[in-house]
């Protein structure tokens, strides 16, 4: 049986692994088979992670996290957790490749998954004009007209990044101001290739084999109009990934994992949670990393006491 298993490989998971490994807990980190590294794998330049005054690429930052976790003996498994039983003293974890692990403590750092618009044909058109990853797919929209929907930092970053390729980027937002940080919003507002469409939502997707346009709906007047587009990038936020533990671990009304006060303790002894999966508010790489550290220290304390 393992001392501690960490599920998730974003900043929270890897930081928990660094601390747990240095505490001699010989952690196993189950990283996912195709999403190892988490959300930052889809970003380009990260400018606000302290300690890197010149910024660095998201995937490079995550490679550093991984190297630091491995340096102290973290075992990393590229597999997907598909089932857990966390209720007993022995926590049981099953993976997509058919492995079963047991541990005394578990740290849940499963992060958040991108939110869909929830429109008909969104899935079918995904990869055919509809995208959630500007760094993956921007290349295919050279000299095209595209739109980004959203109003947070991710939407600003995607819109700015996409102007490298596209001739024109519409930034569609439901409200009359962005919730993005000022520096990111100003960059988008000052970019001559970006045109903001305020107070507007997307009511429909047009096109058969590929996206050809969207139906816009004014959120104030309800008025609808068509906008021809070659591509639509969706950046309207994320939902915590809790399906694995729902029914075992207490959730908040907003469906984040509920933790006790400033700690990482869930309602189940020996089960801790960190990062975006517990955080409806801040959701930064650095806050996730701090939260992963808290979880490792809480787990270490729990293991010493038991």
């Amino acid at each position: 049986m393992r001392e501690v298993i960490i599920i998730g490989s974003g900043p929270a998971g890897y930081t928990a692994a660094i601390y747990a490994a240095r505490a001699g807990l010989n952690p196993l980190l189950i990283a996912s088979s195709v999403e190892a590294g988490g959300e930052l794998m889809k970003t380009t330049e990260v400018e606000n992670y302290p300690g890197f005054p010149d910024g660095l690429m998201g995937p490079d930052l995550m490679a550093n996290f991984q190297a630091q976790a491995e340096r102290f003996g973290t075992e990393i498994l590229l597999d997907d957790v598909i089932e857990v039983d966390l209720r007993g003293d022995v926590k049981i974890i099953k993976t997509g490749e058919g492995k079963t692990f047991e541990a005394k403590a578990v740290i849940l750092a499963t992060g958040a998954a991108y939110r869909e618009l929830g429109l008909p044909r969104e899935k079918e058109l995904s990869g055919h004009g509809v995208s959630w990853c500007a760094t993956c797919d921007g290349f295919f929209f050279r000299q095209k007209t595209i739109a980004v929907v959203g109003g947070g930092d991710s939407a600003m970053e995607e819109a700015n990044f996409l102007t490298r390729f596209a001739d024109k980027v519409y930034l569609i937002h439901r409200r009359d101001s962005f919730k993005a940080s000022k520096i990111m919003a100003d960059r988008a507002l000052n970019n001559p290739k970006i045109e903001v469409i305020w107070n507007t939502g997307i009511a429909g997707l047009k096109g058969e084999a590929k996206l050809e346009g969207v139906t816009l709906e004014d959120t104030v007047t309800g008025e609808k109009r068509e906008l021809p587009l070659d591509g639509l990038f969706i950046a309207i936020g994320n939902d915590p990934r809790v399906w694995l533990v729902e029914g075992q671990v207490d959730l908040t009304p907003e469906k984040f994992i509920n933790v006790e006060g400033r700690s990482s303790k869930t309602n189940l002894p020996g089960v801790f949670a960190a990062g975006d999966v517990i955080d409806p508010t801040y959701r930064q790489a650095i806050t996730a990393a701090g939260s992963g550290c808290v979880a490792a220290l809480d787990a270490e304390h729990y293991l010493t006491a038991h």
Binding site: K42, T135, F139
Partner: peptide
Amino acid sequence: WAEWCGPCRQVSPI
């Protein structure tokens, strides 16, 4: 695939 695509690098060994 492409060099600059992170998810591609993860699918490639599969």
